[in-house]
Simulated assay, not measured.
Amino acid sequence: MIEVALTTDTTVKPAAAWGAVLSMALCVAMLIASEFMPVSLLTPMAEGLGATQGQTGQAISISGLFAVVASLLITTAAGRLNRKWVLVAMTALMLLSLVLVAAAPNFAVLMIGRALLGICIGGFWALATAVIMRLVPKDDVPRALALMYGGQAIAAAFAAPVGSYLGDLFGWREVFWALTPIVAVNLIWHVVALPSLPAGQRQDVRTMFSLLKRPYFLIGLIASMLSWGSAFTMFTYLRPFLERVTGANVTVLSVLLLVLGCAGFVGTWASGRFLKGDVARLLRLPALLMGGCTLGLLFLGGSPFAAGVLLALWGAMNTAMSVIWMTWMSQNADDAPEAAGSLMVAAVQASILLGAVAGGWLLDGFSIRATFIGSAVLAGAALVLIGNGRRLLKPQ
């Protein structure tokens, strides 16, 4: 979720295009809702397509796989195309993806739809920050980014519980159909609100390879992948856990998912307010707290109240994790932010893939508890790699 290619355009910037920023925020909300809606609809989707829950969880992993590829290749593939129309094309792909998923007659069509969504996710996030920096004056960039990421927080808070509730009332296909008119409006909004955004300098792939040769950056990248991999091993298969272990019906499930999502607002606020200076001491916090909550669910998850408390803590740290790791990236790859951003987008999406695949294998091969144990193991590996965080810092 990082910007890949900064423009080299040195012309005078126009007045802030806040309508375009709001259009970007809505696109973010729709991307997050589309990407993770299968989490809240996993059980009925599996039943409707005649697949196992573990197989259906791969609908998330396939989008992650294609997002990894798209995030690394988008600036090269787009060449000198105007970035406005690249973003419009990405949003059109999201619309097509939703239609394919909603109408999918079988598992194969579902996976094609999710693959298209992955291209949209990787392409959009790879360009998002660069576009925001061209829409508003430099002093307004932090506020514009906060507004855009507000779309992510809103979707994280409400998409899963609302999807779960509406899916029970009307069916999982109708939930995906309900998203299509919103994305269609967003597509038109992009065309109207986004100004012309001529392409800047292309991404230099050699810069990415040079970053990977720096031990502190490579270790940090792997540690961040383990942290996110742990999170998505648990999160992708949260509904089966709450159904089987907590005994949650649709109403309780929706409430617990809402608690998790709303806690994300707290995490976003707290990380923005208190994250200052040296970030090394905070790098282990996401894996420590989220891994601890996952273990807590294994022992206390039979109680809806205990599950709610643990999910609130997990949800708050889940949003803070992005701020912590992206701050680390900005402080320790400041000489190559575009290349670092591309690698971080790819790392996050690869972690989604890792989590969904590993969690689904453990669920189908063993049990839902094995999936959560696997999540905790990945968190432990991240903690070992991070240590006190000092070796992940650029030498002074």
Rank of each mutant, 00 (worst) to 15 (best):
E3P: 03
A5S: 11
A5L: 09
A5K: 01
L6Y: 02
T11F: 06
A16D: 11
A20K: 09
C27Q: 03
M30Y: 00
M30F: 10
F36L: 15
P38A: 00
A51S: 15
T56D: 02
Q58I: 09
V68F: 11
S71T: 10
S71H: 08
I74Y: 01
T75Y: 01
T76K: 12
K84N: 13
L87E: 06
T91E: 12
L95Y: 02
S97M: 09
S97W: 10
A108W: 14
I112G: 12
R114G: 04
G118M: 06
A126H: 00
A128R: 01
T129R: 03
V131P: 11
I132V: 15
A144E: 10
G150C: 00
I154S: 01
A159K: 06
A160C: 04
S164C: 03
G171N: 04
V175R: 13
N186S: 14
L187V: 08
A193W: 00
P195E: 10
L197K: 05
A199H: 01
Q201H: 14
Q201V: 11
R206V: 07
T207A: 15
F217W: 09
L218R: 14
A223D: 07
L226G: 04
W228H: 12
F241S: 09
R244S: 15
T246G: 04
N249Y: 07
L253Q: 12
S254F: 03
V255C: 08
G264T: 01
G267H: 05
G267N: 05
A270K: 02
A270E: 03
G272K: 03
A287H: 10
L289S: 09
T294S: 13
A307V: 04
W314H: 12
M317W: 06
T319P: 01
I324W: 06
W328K: 04
M329S: 08
N332D: 00
A340F: 01
V345P: 00
A347K: 07
A356C: 08
W361G: 04
L362K: 11
L363F: 14
G365L: 12
G365C: 07
F366Y: 14
F372W: 10
I373A: 08
I373H: 00
S375Y: 05
A382Y: 05
L385I: 07
I386A: 09
N388Q: 06
